[in-house]
Design a protein around this nucleic acid. Structure first.
Lengths: 190, 190
DNA sequence: CGAGGCCTTGACCGCGGTCAATGCCCGTGG
DNA sequence: CCACGGGCATTGACCGCGGTCAAGGCCTCG
């Protein structure tokens, strides 16, 4: 996975100044206070959110319960991919866990840019490929690891999630009930 | 999801004849007999396989057991995405379930083409986006549906899988043991 | 100081996994 | 042509992981 970061960074570094400035032209900054929503279910996700400061999470509701699907930190891109890509109403919420400063890019302007600029299309492709790798990894972990193993894996690889997010949100992210996660933590600390 | 097919088809229809012929130039046809491997674990996935005829499946081994991750039919693209994208040894096998006729495209030649052609880069992006949507859907089903519901969903949406693939392979695809799937089928037929 | 969120802990139980026996279908060779 | 063996599916017995329900503890903030 780290190799992919490198690929993306190299590509970013190789962008024309002109391309960069055009990207800048279609982006604007905005602050979302803690607890507010960058996106709510029912609305179409018309923007992508590049995280400049703060933390956020994405979740959906199922039988009245929240299923956290992703956490966002500095430099992550927050978006409901399904709603954004198809421009259909979202089933997901994106919530500011802390005050967030984000760079917002409009879907249509970005799409137009992608149609003109090979550099942007390539950037987008790299990001998509990274997301697909991440999804494959999650799916594989879900199949092959039990709840404790998944927690330990998160503990090792994503310390910031463990430290900054609530137990309940981490639990649904791992695909277990918060009671079970509580017991797992107890067992591990013993 | 169907909307995505449309998007991809429209894009394919809009391709320059020249672009198409260049794609053709870097592809070649090949037959894989039933039971043979388009890709074996340990090897780097240096090609993508566009299915012209026959059926195939992708799987990995975990604790000596096969986990089927994808089935391929006519017009599908078979590839171990992780191995292909990162050009690292594969953990997955792609096996011809029946005799297969495929169109093979070389990774490096395709990458080179992507760097030159916005149309090809866009095509690749559309395919990636479709794959990511598919992965998101699988992950969501895994979280929210029990074994029976997942089977019924497959029954409704992917008849060809149910009809043409072995119970054992369908079971691991659904994330259950084949004994459990056997019981589910019995219950449903009653 | 009281209320509401969040986490912990206990009791209970069901889905689905494992192990093992049996059945069934089919290809192969005597 | 039948007998045997291998591969695949079915079925039963058992049990453990993790879900649900419910009670209780602990902060934080108004």
């Amino acid at each position: 996975m780290e190799r992919y970061f490198k690929k993306i960074e190299e590509h970013l570094a190789s962008l024309d100044p002109e391309t960069l400035s055009r990207l800048n032209d279609i982006s604007s900054e905005r602050i979302y206070p803690k607890g507010s929503f960058l996106l709510e279910a029912g609305n179409i996700c018309r923007h992508s959110f590049f995280m400049l400061e703060g933390t956020a999470r994405k979740y959906s509701l199922h039988d009245g319960k929240e299923i956290t699907t992703e956490f966002y930190f500095k430099d992550d891109i927050a978006v409901s991919f399904r709603s954004y890509g198809l421009q259909i109403p979202s089933e997901e919420y994106i919530e500011a866990v802390e005050d967030c400063k984000v760079s917002i890019t409009d879907y249509y302007q970005y799409e137009a840019l992608k149609k003109e600029s090979l550099q942007i299309a390539t950037l987008d492709l790299l990001i998509m490929e990274y997301y697909a790798l991440w999804l494959e990894e999650k799916l594989y972990q879900q199949r092959t690891m039990d709840a404790t193993e998944r927690y330990v894996s998160l503990l090792n690889k994503n310390t910031e999630i463990i430290q900054q997010m609530k137990v309940g949100h981490i639990a649904s992210y791992l695909g277990v009930s918060f009671e079970t996660l509580s017991r797992i933590r107890k067992r591990l600390s013993a």
